[in-house]
Design a protein around this nucleic acid. Structure first.
Lengths: 338, 338
DNA sequence: TACCTGTGCTAAATCGATTTTGTGAAAATT
DNA sequence: AATTTTCACAAAATCGATTTAGCACAGGTA
């Protein structure tokens, strides 16, 4: 039960391997193979069930028809939605996807990129984490097609696509302020990421625009990657230290989930004791009573746009991109918590 | 900036390509290459940063060093945990993983398997869905290494590993019965899957063992793949039709989540109005007040065992398996809901 | 008649590794 | 001294495709 090769098909059809190759790759006309011969070859190939050997094709053509998708956490819900769309879109274009997660391991990002390099992926889709800047820079310098998602590095000139973080937070803040709240806390992590800074900027700007004073003590910067329990405690201390708070804006869904746990422990009820709003949706937020209001990321849009940008780069005979920094609007979803 | 090839390294080291290959693949001794030459080659290769071209290696050796992981849904939490462990374990053994999800699309399973076949994966890890039986049978007949997880087909003779469903349900039922409950409902889907049947068997047996009558009307078989709203309604009707119920055992986490939503709508409080227990944990169950008690799947164990079974098959010079049907115990986790 | 031009395909080179087979010189054996 | 072995590599075949170059033959031109 050996694999059927192109040579076998050629023998069966009574022609040379090259002829079969031409026909099956749609270059029959160009190579002026007679229609009847072409037809015959097609038929033989069809009913023989021949499938070209991918590795051989890859070796010869130098293209693996595979994309690398690097995300922070493969178990995250952001990834889950992203992966589905990307996989579908990639398949539609004849590409496969291999996934990798950095699992918040700063140095692992670099290793991953190298690993994918060995795997010879044709292009990269990356949600960049702080430690990966140099490696990504390296890729771009080698003219490897790269598209960043969810964040980006100002220093690296490669296309990226993400939600309009500033605008998203503004939407949420406008809602809270519209409800008459002025004592609004903002909970964020202390990693230096452009999207986090944008969210903070959205918070501050919204307050200023409405002449509400911005108080430092209402901004909590949790240290990233601490023990879960420790983060919970910091968060609880923060809330207890500011009992007058009317609302809390969590800048990531991870923080929001911590928040839910803390509020439950403290016996605070949403939205009456305190209103809660979170950036980036999560399954839990739909279900957790009374439903957590969120700014939803246009994940599908991000995925589709990212693939488009990547394909554009992979397409040799297409000019340079007009726009290579794309921001998609987020969507405010009102639930019971705010 | 061309890729460095083995030939280049050979030239740099002043030897033949074959010599370099032998040395780098640890066959230096066997091919009696002098240690000094070997050393020299190693050094040259090292500082040149040479990485073998995977596709070329694959083509020559016939091994892609890639495993295919097929799951129902790539966004499910079962997959999330599974994928992480499998990826880590596979990498440790020098293998890569490509993921695919059937997304509950009955026929898509077959396509996926064929697609992976084209991709030339060396082995398959599959959580089988009803429509995939024939395709899997086909793989096994071709002597492709296959390991099933989470479920299996009695007709297919290939290794599988899953939780002991019967025992898991028993654990949960014993807890409920120990609390004095006798009016316990069991909610399941109507797909004909071995693991579902085992869970039902666990429910029935537990009741019988404690001389509690088994009532048909306490068993709800939801139709799979209906509209979400419709399922919710069926579930609500069921609960309303049996107001005397003391506890509900949801046989999958998907059903459990539906249950939470219905109970919330009906204003029923756990555990006082009704106790709830669910098979298979989920992020939400940890957080959702008062915490949903569950039977947790030993996902990490399943993943590790599955890889082991697969590697055993990939290892040509290893005899046949002693055990090829492995059941791992589940773990009862007590939270507030029951 | 000799020469050129298309036609319609085949032969052979190529991708970059691995693996089998060869080979000249030194060492060992007869 | 002649022959066989062993040593230490080099040369070449191979994996299965793609792609370039080549090669008969028919017909048209000079």
């Amino acid at each position: 039960m050996k694999r059927l090769t192109l040579k076998d098909v050629a023998k069966m059809a009574g022609v040379a391997p090259s002829t079969v190759s031409f026909v099956l790759n749609g270059k029959g006309k160009q190579m002026r193979i007679r229609d009847e011969v072409a037809m015959h070859i097609m038929q033989v190939a069809e009913k023989s069930g021949y499938e070209p050997h991918r590795m051989a094709v890859n070796l010869r053509t130098g293209q693996s028809k595979t994309l690398g998708l690097i995300v922070e956490s493969i178990s995250g819900s952001f990834f889950a939605s992203l992966a589905k769309t990307i996989e579908t879109e990639a398949e539609r274009r004849g590409y496969n996807v291999v996934y990798c997660s950095t699992e918040n391991n700063a140095q692992k990002g670099g290793e991953l990129i190298r690993m994918l390099g060995r795997q010879m992926v044709d292009g990269y889709l990356i949600t960049p984490a702080p430690g990966m800047e140099k490696e990504i820079q390296h890729l771009v310098q080698q003219h490897k097609p790269v598209v960043l998602m969810d964040s980006f590095f100002p220093s690296i000139k490669t296309p990226y696509v993400l939600i309009n973080n500033f605008d998203g937070v503004q939407q949420g803040m406008k809602h809270l302020i519209g409800k008459g709240f002025t004592k609004i806390a903002f909970v964020m992590v202390d990693v230096k990421l452009i999207q986090i800074e944008e969210r903070l900027r959205g918070y501050v700007t919204a307050l200023k625009d409405h002449k509400i004073p911005v108080r430092k003590k209402y901004i909590l910067q949790l240290q990233y990657h601490r023990e879960r329990e420790e983060s919970l405690k910091q968060l609880q201390d923060f809330i207890e230290a500011n009992p007058e708070l009317e609302a809390i804006f969590f800048s990531t869904n991870y923080l929001g989930i911590l928040g839910l746990e803390v509020l439950a422990r403290m016996g605070l009820k949403m939205p009456d004791d305190i209103a809660v709003l979170c950036f980036d949706d999560h399954d839990i937020f739909r279900l957790y009573p009374p439903g957590i209001s969120v700014i939803e990321q246009p994940i599908e849009g991000i995925a589709k746009t990212a693939i488009d940008l990547l394909m554009h780069q992979l397409d040799k005979n297409s000019g340079p991109l007009k726009k290579n920094a794309i921001e998609l609007p987020g969507k405010f979803i009102l639930r019971g918590s705010a």
